[in-house]
């Protein structure tokens, strides 16, 4: 990359983002796909964490009841 002038690198980046004019279709495809997959994973993990906490609390109160 060092041999390129700054302007040339910027042009390359611009060309990459532009995607021959298809950037407006390509990038939303990737972003929405990545976004939705990450959101689903985060929601699922939170669901697990919340359930683990609830179970622990329930088991603790169950123990207290026994005592």
């Amino acid at each position: 990359m060092g041999s390129y002038k700054d302007g040339k690198v910027m042009d390359q980046i611009r060309d990459f983002i532009n995607m021959e004019g298809y950037g407006g279709y390509v990038w939303p495809s990737y972003l929405v796909t990545a976004g939705l997959m990450i959101i689903l994973l985060v929601i699922t993990r939170r669901f697990l964490k919340a359930n683990m906490a609830t179970l622990e609390a329930l088991e603790n109160t169950a123990k207290e009841d026994v005592e």
């Binding site: 689903l40 697990l48 609830t54 179970l55």
Partner: peptide, 21 residues
Amino acid sequence: IWVLLVRIRAEIISNKIRILR
């Protein structure tokens, strides 16, 4: 598979919670 593993763990625990309650 990743999401499935997390979700199944969560559902098993959820069933346990229901039984405990």
